[in-house]
Write a protein that binds this DNA or RNA. Structure first.
Lengths: 228, 228
DNA sequence: CGTAAGATTGAGTCCGATCAAGGCGAGTGG
DNA sequence: CCACTCGCCTTGATCGGACTCAATCTTACG
């Protein structure tokens, strides 16, 4: 692991305020591993050994029940995952796989729990992170239950466009398949919803999404700060 | 507030391990209030002043968006709520109302945050509670997305019956309307699903639910420890 | 015993899933 | 340079779960 990557991790909300010696201890105990695309990282039902942090690549959290599979979240670099399972020392409720080649920092669960006990700043950061993730999950639940598929897509386009340098034309970082499942719909339905949104100022051009009428898109999406 | 109620609160996971003086400080700062049925306790979008703990009665957390309303959770005595909003000092994402007359203990948010800083046992309990609630929300999301309405009802009946003294015949603690919304369906659909479950060993008799064939119910419900 | 609220039943509709083709595009090999 | 092929995306047709609206039935309570 290079110094730039260590600095990147140190800069994360979870680690930026803790004492330097404790951070060093975490990093000494940690493993830094690379995984290929479509690699299964964790399986629901197993016990957590390590807190995971995405350093490079994209990782999907998902659940399987019978024939069904749902995506819980798609994570980009800088995200910690399975924090709740590590804290409670209880089985994973979700599985994780890489969607691209990825590098993951893995900190032994026991070391995380030990340092939580003696570093107040780290404890505060953990509880803050967990509360943030909790609220993210409430938002996800609201998004799924209070909006139709086309509204979810419209909001996704609206909010993703705001994070781009060119807000009128951009290329999603994930495949349409992954986008569909992260929005809780089938690829077929995603395609239909894109067609539907042409009425509301959004066009597809190859892999690009073009927003021809941001006002119309926003009017249809009705973004809500308590959901998004 | 009577001593019995203080003891009840002291016995909760969140408070049972903390130092006595810090607990006393929390309780001194706290208000204990009674509310009538159908009273609005908190509104999404407002800022949190108090951590709430249900002492008596039943409280519903819900969200509204446009014409739609969904139930996030129905809480019985002993449950803390809006912990995540208190910790982050950020707006509520959900609203709360009483479903019955209720008594609620309210601890000023700032006092909770102060004592978190200096009582490690309390900090540990907070993070444990939050992790537990996080996992509960993941389970709720999985339950909603991976099961049909009749499967959710079957699992609710199955798990609720296990908590009753008479596991073959019991009366739900909440109304059918509240049950329907907590299972994410309309009252009409709940009724149809009850009818449907007669094929799988469940009968209605007035307000009572009777399980005639627990094996058949379980076989249909397919309970899963990673969801329920 | 009458009224009102809650619960059930029925009919019609919508959203989204599934199944099945068809089209586009990028990479490969002749 | 072009045809081929394999994913991936799109389109069409059909199906099913759940919602809405409306009417009826039941129950609780004054």
């Amino acid at each position: 692991m290079r110094q730039a990557e260590i600095d990147q991790v140190r800069g994360l909300r979870l680690f930026c305020d803790m004492r330097a010696d404790n951070f060093a201890e975490l990093m000494n105990a940690a493993k830094f591993e690379s995984f290929p695309k479509d690699f299964s990282l964790i399986n629901e039902g197993d016990l957590p050994d390590f807190l995971h942090i995405v350093v490079h690549g994209t990782i999907e959290m998902f659940c399987i029940h019978g024939e069904q599979e749902i995506t819980i979240e798609i994570m980009q670099p800088g995200t910690t995952f399975i924090l709740a399972a590590v804290i409670r020392d209880d089985v994973y409720l979700t599985s994780a796989r890489t969607l691209t080649a990825a590098q993951v920092l893995m900190i032994p669960a026991q070391v995380v729990r030990d340092i939580f006990e003696r570093d107040v700043a780290f404890a505060r950061a953990i509880v803050n992170e967990l509360a943030l993730r909790f609220r993210g999950l409430v938002r996800a639940l609201k998004n799924k239950q209070l909006r139709t598929g086309s509204e979810r897509l419209a909001n996704w386009i609206f909010h993703t466009s705001l994070q781009q340098e060119d807000q009128k034309r951009f290329k999603p970082a994930i495949s349409k398949q992954s986008l569909a499942s992260s929005l809780g719909m089938t690829p077929e339905h995603l395609s239909r919803n894109f067609t539907f949104l042409e009425q509301h100022g959004v066009k597809r051009l190859g892999k690009y999404i073009i927003i021809e009428d941001p006002i119309a898109l926003k009017a249809f999406a009705k973004p809500n700060s308590l959901i998004d």
